[in-house]
């Protein structure tokens, strides 16, 4: 990275629940130091909705559930040198990918939409239709992890990862000295 300017970081939540962004905030007071060390570009944290410049690091939360996620992810790949997949949704599809494995169903997508908007027990849907405004992005046939759509450089596992691992990994990557996770930094209960 260029020493004479601050590294630029962009973040996005694709089909994520924002839990991993909250986990970024879990670095607590270290956030102050981080904000002095880097510039945030496109991110929900800055409410910048498009890239203003090319970024060094892109942090991706969430996998790809719809075409807009794919579009945004491809945009991130083209505008960032390094992409970090943060959390299980970005790494392997995460919890939303449970839609992929609905057993004994020929049309899992249609079933999910119908259950949510038409046949569900406590639904009040006066149109009796599945919402279909052109502004709504089309859903993908299944949920894809980010690495199937673009090349991903790093992954931080967890649902959500703890603040410490996020801070350590991000700091190492920024300093160019990330060499993978130590064995005892991950405990899966």
């Amino acid at each position: 990275m260029n020493e004479t300017r601050k590294p630029r970081v962009a973040t996005v939540s694709l089909a994520g629940c924002f839990g991993c962004h909250m986990a970024i905030l879990d670095i607590d007071e270290r956030l102050v130091g981080l904000m002095q060390a880097v510039e945030f570009d496109r991110s929900p944290l800055t409410d910048l909705k498009t890239f203003t410049r090319r970024c060094d690091i892109g942090i991706i939360e969430g996998g790809c559930c719809n075409e807009e996620n794919v579009h945004v992810l491809q945009d991130f790949r083209r505008n960032c040198d390094v992409l970090i997949a943060l959390g299980q949704c970005a790494i392997m599809g995460g919890l939303p990918a449970m839609r992929n494995a609905i057993m004994q169903s020929d049309a899992p997508l249609r079933e999910c939409l119908e259950e949510a908007y038409i046949t569900g027990a406590y639904i009040r849907n006066t149109t009796h239709q599945i919402p279909n405004d052109p502004a709504l992005p089309l859903l993908l046939d299944r949920v894809y992890p980010c690495s199937e759509v673009v090349e991903i450089d790093y992954q931080i596992p967890g649902c959500a990862p703890g603040g410490d691992i996020i801070f350590e990994t991000l700091s190492s990557i920024l300093a160019g000295r990330f060499h993978g996770f130590s064995r005892d930094s991950f405990k899966f209960d």
Binding site: A15, G16, C17, F18, G19, C20, H21, M22, A23, C65, N66, E68, G94, L95, P96, M98, R99, A101, I102, M103, P108, L109, E111, C112, L113, E115, A116, G120, A135, L136, P137, L139, C159, A160
Partner: peptide, 28 residues
């Protein structure tokens, strides 16, 4: 614009899994 299908895919899960699954509706 986000749609994930929780209502459908929690069907058939064990009773005590459901609160853990639906936490992931929102991380905030």
């Amino acid at each position: 614009v986000e749609f994930r299908g929780f209502e459908r895919f929690i069907r058939g899960r064990l009773l005590w899994e459901v609160p853990v699954i639906v936490q992931r509706l929102c991380g905030i």
